[in-house]
Each structure stands twice: as C-alpha cells, then as structure tokens.
Design a protein around this nucleic acid. Structure first.
Lengths: 228, 228
DNA sequence: ATTACTAGGTATCGAGTAC
DNA sequence: TGTACTCGATACCTAGTAA
C-alpha cells in the first residue's frame, strides 16, 4: 500500500548537522560529536542540538552508538543521498545541466524491453514526452565497475518522467528518461524506479539502435548522458 | 569601527528561496515569483513566504521591483556569494579538496610585494604557517578574462590564514594563502583580504620564482592552485 | 563529564483581511 | 489578481536539572 511514509521535511539545522558529519567522514566511519559541540557549530543550545540528533536518528538519517562518555554518529545511505541531492542542486546552479560520459559494451537484453515497450500505457507517455514512438526493443549497455559510481549519480538528476500505471491486472512501475548521445539517432536512457543497482543500462530510440549504430553484442560503445 | 554588522543567520527556508531564484536565473535577471508560488515551492503559506522575501530584501540578499501585479526578484552579489559558499561546502564533501588550473602570463609587479614581504609582522607568520621564509618579491601572473571567474572562486576555499597587524603607525591587512604548483619549488598564492578584483595574482616562494622557473615578463605559465 | 527530560517564555506560523 | 498587515494558536527554544 504505502511505499513511502510521509517524511516530514528536514529542518535547515538538521541538514547542517548532516553536512558537518559528512565533512568529518561520517559517511563511512562513526564520528564523535557531542551535542554541545554540535550546538556550538550550528549556533543553538546543547538541548536543541540533541533534539536534532535524536530526530535524525529516529528518521533514519544517522545511527548512534554510545560509548562510555560520548556518542558516535554514522550517516545512513538515506542521509548521503539527501546530501548528494543538495549538492547536485547547487552544482546545477553554478555549472549548468550535468552530463556524464563513459564507455560501455553492448550486451544482450532479456527480451523484457520489447514486452514493456509494447504496453500502450508506456507508449502514449513516451510519444508525448519524448517526441517519438519508441522502437519496441532496448539497446542494453554494460557499464564497467569503475564507471558504476558516476553513472549511478544520474538518478539524482532531473529527467523526463514516465508514470507507472495499472493494466491487465498487474502494476507497471514508473521510470525516468535522460537524453543520451550514442552517435546516432535521438535516444534516451531509461532508469526504472525499481532498479536493482544493475550494471546494465537501457536505451530507447525511434528506430532499432542496434541497426542504426551497426553494433552487436560485445562491441564497445561511447555513451553520453545529459540532464533533461 | 565595524567592518561587518552582526548578520543574523539565514533560515533554511530563506536559503531555499535563494536557490529557487538562482535556478531560474535570478542571479543575472529579475525573476517573477509571487509570494504564493514561493510558499508552495517551499511548503509554507503565502504569508510566511512573503515574510521571508521581505526579510531577504531587508538583509540585502534580493532586490525587489514591483510591476503592476507581480514582483520581480533579483539576487544580489551577497546572495550569490552565499550560494557559492554552500555549493563549495557540498563539493568538498563529494569531490574532495578543490583545485583549479589555468594558464596566465608573467607580469611585472609594482615592487609592492618586496615592501610587504619585508615586514617582520608578515615574515614570522609566513615562516610559521607556510614552512619557509619567503623570498622578498612576488611572481605576478596575469589571468585571462575567461579564467577570472574560476580563479575568483578560490576565495571561498579554505586556505592558510595570515593575520593583519599594526606596525609603524599603519595597518597591514590580512591575507589567505593557497598552495600553488608552478612546476618549480613549493610556492603559494596570496589573496589579500582587501583585494580589488584584480586580474593579477601573486605567488611567493622561498626563492626567487623568476629565477627558479627561468621566466620573464610576458611568458606564458601553467598554474595550479589547490585548497589547503 | 555526557545525554535527555520538563517547564515556561517567545518566536513563528497561518487565517483573515486591508490595500 | 497581487503584497503585506494584525492576531490568536502553537511549535520551538533555552534554562534547569535528572540520570
């Protein structure tokens, strides 16, 4: 029923604390920070800082461990995600829309793409929002482990939204599209909402990318992905 | 007497509004944003949003102009500075210490450097905090206009602090130093606190950089500046 | 020392509304 | 339409103080 509980927005002071922790390496190792010092750093009392830290703990942004005297704080992935999103927001202001380029290898799909791209619920959205009716098949590109991290940051960008829907008694999830430059026709990267941290990304276009680019499984391919 | 009035810290909501304005180009052109829409964007009422905008105006972060119906908002340099500082804070978390590289041309100093670098008040600080006693003369590098912007961002970085002092009945201002890589001996960029947006930056080292690098006025030179 | 509770004062919010 | 005021209600902060 409920995939995401209503998450009360974090206050500015709480985000500040997350930033301080991240700056001290709190994203990968527990960091000592007393509520008093936390309060001094953000300009509030020890009591208020402590409340913020308790709230951050309860909301799942930090995990606290108590030593004999002082607590240690470790950021959760949720917090790192939030900070990265903030970072990207600023980055976009000063550096413009983001893009990422990498080299991958063409890999065979599981045939799933064809099935999904045939669903009318998706087709109408693609046609409206992407400007073309997609060829019913995706070009799958395998990402090397060293590029996984930077490609993964794409999910924080603003993209073209494809909504989920219900049809034929089952649920089809949503996805987000990003303009992709593969050296051929206009195409888009698709990131399903429910992705499994795969090392394969999928591209769609109005025509068969395999044919248009004259590539086959195992070929290397240069890819650029842009923010929408 | 008072160089900087006590500036009450901006609230999270106010910073959010600045971000929204910056994202709409409000840093260089007035942007239409009604208090109602502002409120919706940050999740508060029209009244609260309006109060925030009034406060931002009064504090000198935005300038408002009123048309027939809707107000237009333009960010001041103060606001852009604040956002850039935030950006850099996040950048440092995710990308590590910043650095910037550019190509400039060696230019003749005004001989001022020699005078300042002879002041004992400066010499003791340089020796202590930089690890060497500077040669009494600076290497001046002219920055091309296209690189001015990125070089200018250096002033937001964390650097090595040199404090101002009083001596011989006059005041000597403070400055901040940043490690510089010029292809020769260890050297530092110096940014005086009271800088005049010059297109010339100054480097110091333990020896004469002119001699060590065998450069003369007008020569091109590759420079890298790092965060401390 | 810490973290964290209660009490009470104040800052801030949104509704209503004037302009 | 807009912006911006007054006015209760309440959310939040700090001080005091347990644990």
């Amino acid at each position: 029923m409920s995939t995401s509980a209503r998450r009360p927005r974090l206050k500015g002071e709480e985000v500040q604390l997350l930033k301080i922790l991240a700056g001290s390496g709190g994203d990968h190792v527990p960091v000592v920070l007393t509520s008093r010092e936390a309060g001094e750093r953000i300009g509030v009392s020890q009591q208020a800082a402590d409340r913020y830290l308790m709230a951050l703990d309860k909301e799942g942004y930090v995990t606290r461990t108590f030593g004999a005297r002082k607590q240690r704080l470790l950021l959760t992935p949720l917090a790192v995600d939030l900070l990265r999103k903030e970072y990207h927001g600023y980055r976009r202001i000063f550096e413009g829309p983001a893009k990422v380029t990498f080299r991958g290898t063409v890999s065979s799909g599981l045939g799933e793409g064809r099935y999904y791209l045939s669903q009318p619920g998706y087709v109408v959205q693609f046609t409206e929002r992407l400007g073309y009716t997609p060829f019913p098949g995706t070009l799958n590109v395998r990402v090397s482990p060293s590029d996984m991290l930077k490609v993964g940051s794409v999910k924080h960008w603003s993209g073209i939204r494809i909504d989920g829907f219900q049809a034929s008694g089952r649920t089809f999830g949503g996805a987000t599209c990003y303009p992709g430059i593969l050296g051929g026709p206009v195409s888009h990267l698709i990131i399903p909402d429910r992705t499994h941290h795969q090392d394969v990304v999928e591209f769609i276009s109005a025509v068969s990318l395999r044919e248009a680019l004259r590539v086959k499984d195992g070929d290397g391919i240069d890819v650029e992905i842009r923010e929408a």
